[in-house]
Design a binder for these strands. Structure first.
Lengths: 229, 229
DNA sequence: AACAGTTTTTGACATAAATCAAGGAAACAG
DNA sequence: CTGTTTCCTTGATTTATGTCAAAAACTGTT
């Protein structure tokens, strides 16, 4: 039942690699189960390797001194995380833990760096992964600094609708509390905004199922962020 | 007077490259003067290459629909920028313009990708550059989401003191308005915070010269972000 | 079905920072 | 220098969102 090879050969990082290279990779990698809420690494840890999510979902986050959490990324199957220390030479800039029951694959730093120097296509894939992540960060900074919570929320819904390829209904794959943390706010505020959006007929909320009733309205909200009360 | 080679051979990206490779690089690159306020590229532009700052200072930023600006990075001599589209295949996620009279070097996408596939050490350097940038972004997100303006400002001062290797006096190399935009706030707020910090004896402000009078106090402020009025 | 635990919602209130408006200082060009 | 433009500061006010406290709605478990 070793599906790690399948996940890897499908992943952004290793797609296009010949069968035998994948085999060599799985040989140097260590698989690890992760329980919900279990810490994988902490901000400040040295970081002598990186991970690929095989199954489940991993969050990467920061905590304020008062305990507020900001989620930086959520990673599903096939997605690598924790690569920054491998190339920057510095410690993990954030912490990672499982959001649900998960499995991850750990790749030791040296073995992976060796692979990259001999295999330009892996290097190119890694560059693409990091570039895409930088892109996402620019959007996250833009959201936090230039947009208000309703606009971020509307943007999130529209993005999810695309990813879930369903233009008018999405299902949250994380709790509302986690969503609040991802959007840079707190559960109370998120709850209030959801109610407001419902009252205005933009969405209909049933637990984790969100029906998008007014896409033009949501698109407008995501861009201009104004909501008349 | 072609110092581009010198700047390149000193740069993070090309350090360690043999003389002849640097020469080959400058052969494919195009030098371009940039006036203060001159646009280099805009968010959404295709991006068929990236840049290295030779001289001066370049800012990369986002604008809100209402015109507020958030600066994402400031790049000085030797620093590359605009690489994301080269590897992600997508458009520029932000815009770039000169802050002062500058010179930049443009590298066409294809030539650079070719260089990387044949030259693992350049690939590794680029990975290091992108990783470091990701690191900075996590800090920026943390600042925007988990810290208040006084804490960000104190953190900025301490960072500058380090970079300028002078523990008790720093000189701003950008205007206060630009600093506000970098910290994710507006000039009015920045001005008020500076006054407050002066009143509390944390710093002394004389134009662009900031004297750090109370490092422990500033460090505390940067971490906990509380300032009694 | 009932319990303990968590997650979500709601209300009243506090506050950091944005906005609006205007005056002052500094930098720059002629 | 001297006028003009840009940058910076200050005050009064508004607003979005965080805080605190408590109730309500789920979740899964014996």
């Amino acid at each position: 039942m070793n599906r790690s090879k399948d996940v890897l050969s499908q992943s952004i990082l290793f797609s296009g690699l010949p069968e035998q290279d994948i085999a060599a990779l799985t040989a140097i990698a260590v698989e690890k189960p992760v329980a919900p809420g279990e810490l994988i690494f902490s901000e400040g840890d040295p970081g002598d390797g990186f991970y690929v999510t095989l199954e489940g979902m991993i969050k990467v986050y920061k905590l304020s001194t008062e305990g507020k959490e900001q989620i930086l990324h959520m990673f599903g199957p096939g997605e690598p995380f924790g690569e920054v220390p491998v190339f920057s030479g510095k410690a993990f800039p954030a912490s990672a833990e499982g959001v649900k029951k998960s499995r991850v694959l750990f790749f030791p730093r040296k073995a992976f760096r060796d692979l990259i120097t001999t295999n330009p296509s892996v290097a190119m894939n890694m560059l693409a992964v990091l570039s895409r992540r930088l892109r996402n960060f620019t959007i996250q900074v833009e959201n936090l600094s230039l947009k208000e919570v309703p606009a971020r929320l509307a943007g999130y819904f529209l993005l999810q609708a695309e990813e879930q390829k369903n233009p008018d209904t999405i299902t949250l794959n994380i709790s509302k509390g986690q969503l609040a943390s991802f959007l840079g706010t707190i559960p109370e505020t998120l709850s209030r905004m959801l109610r407001k959006m419902s009252e205005q007929g933009l969405v209909e909320v049933q637990g984790r199922i969100i029906r998008l009733l007014d896409r033009p309205g949501l698109e407008d909200l995501a861009e201009f962020g104004k909501m008349e009360d």
